[in-house]
Amino acid sequence: MNRNPKCVWVPGPVIIGAGPSGLATAACLKEKGVPSLIIEKESCVASLWKTKTYDRLKLHLPKQLCELPHMEMPAETPAYPTKNQFILYLDAYAKHFCIKPILGVEVRSAEYDSTMGFWHVLSNDFKFVCRWLIVATGENAEPVLPDISGVSDFKGRVSHSSSYKNGADFKGEEVLVVGCGNSGMEISLDLCHSGAQASIVVRDKLHVLPREMFGRSTFGLSMLLLKWFPVGLVDWFVLLCSRLILGDTGRYGFKRPEVGPFQLKNSTGKTPVLDVGTLANIKIGQIKVVPGIEKFTATGAEFIDGTMAKFDSLIFATGYRSNVPSWLKEELFNKGGHPKTPFPNNWKGKNELYSVGFNRRGLLGVSMDAQKVAEDISQQWNSETKHLRTEL
């Protein structure tokens, strides 16, 4: 740690994170005439999308629900953009709004000076001083690896989905995918298409829904219905349609929770799985469904039903977590790195501290947060008659 970091006064907000959340917030602020500064620990914008996603990834929702504020995706972009198409959009977005983050700056701590009324954001080489601080590092900052007995004894390859690119290196292998969310389901499908035998662990109950119903996005159609009908009725309708399209998912190892998919998402943030073809391969036995893991062995795994199986590789599709608690000790966030106040009031805390992208509503939620934050800060900015613009 540099004991004499360069102190920099930032007249507008400091935004931590140059992913979609940070870019959207900077663009919304710029549209309202408020300058901002983004600092990012990685060497590029949208680093999660560029370095920690698999090749076959496509957006699960139609592009209209994934666009950031004030800029549509190109007309030629397909309904469900690929990873690379979305990355191109993010790069074009940053260029369009002249957003130029300071890259390679990792925040070590962020503290509010109540005496002076400013935030001090400390990195190795800089201390940024600002009135407004916006946390836009997102919910997916650090990979999660569960602590399961025996994993250190396993002799094969062990990796996290963040390092998975495609199934070419796994051809001919028996691969156990731990985690049955959207990433785990899609990686299992990719492995299947690449000539590997994939098995996916399904420990808990979950909702598997078709990506589309009646030629429309299931999620988009549900959002439309939720404007007119109660969530319980919409859940009933979606589950009925899902049963007609996918059949009884419980027969294949996916038992549904007692609570409907959108009521469950509202209460816990748990997103239903949108099927893109994995279930069809499960039905014909090309992808196996296995129960929860009791422990790992040197050659494979023992499951909670007492059965055992051998595997060449393990892939943990067990998600990510926020890293905010490691450097921010303020009341807006809990120990898990999420805002204490639930949606829709999650975006603002005390002392001009804000969060964007922590409402568990994906890219649509990012846009909602960014616009609220920009509106709130712009009102304060425009009410001021004088702003310091000098570097300390």
Rank of each mutant, 00 (worst) to 15 (best):
T137M: 03
F229E: 08
G362W: 04
M368E: 13
H120C: 12
L233C: 07
R251N: 14
K32R: 15
G117R: 04
W9H: 14
T307I: 00
D55S: 13
W347Y: 15
R211H: 11
L224I: 10
H338C: 09
L328A: 03
R3E: 12
I304T: 15
K100M: 06
M368D: 13
C241P: 00
I282C: 07
L246M: 08
A24H: 07
H96S: 10
N351A: 06
S152R: 13
K127W: 00
D312W: 04
M116Q: 15
L240T: 14
V273F: 05
L68P: 00
K270S: 12
P344T: 01
G215V: 10
K350F: 02
S217T: 03
L57F: 11
D248I: 06
S161Y: 01
G184N: 08
Y80A: 11
S355W: 01
L246F: 01
Y89D: 00
E72K: 14
K127N: 14
R56V: 08
G22C: 12
D147V: 14
Y354G: 07
L68N: 02
R361E: 01
H120W: 03
V45S: 06
P81M: 04
K41I: 00
S123D: 06
I99F: 05
N4M: 11
A317S: 13
P230S: 06
K227N: 11
I148S: 07
A26E: 05
R203K: 15
V273E: 04
V259H: 00
G172D: 07
W119P: 03
D113G: 10
A298P: 04
G232N: 13
W381G: 04
A280G: 02
L388C: 13
Q380T: 14
G12H: 06
G365S: 10
P261F: 03
S162N: 11
F170C: 03
K41W: 07
S188L: 05
T278V: 13
G117N: 02
F86S: 01
S378D: 06
E111I: 09
D113L: 07
K50Y: 04
E142R: 14
D305H: 10
P230R: 09
M368R: 04
A298G: 02
R360T: 01
L224S: 14
K255G: 08
G167T: 04
L364Q: 12
S161L: 08
R256E: 11
K283H: 00
F170H: 09
T82S: 15
P146V: 12
W381L: 08
D190A: 00
S161T: 12
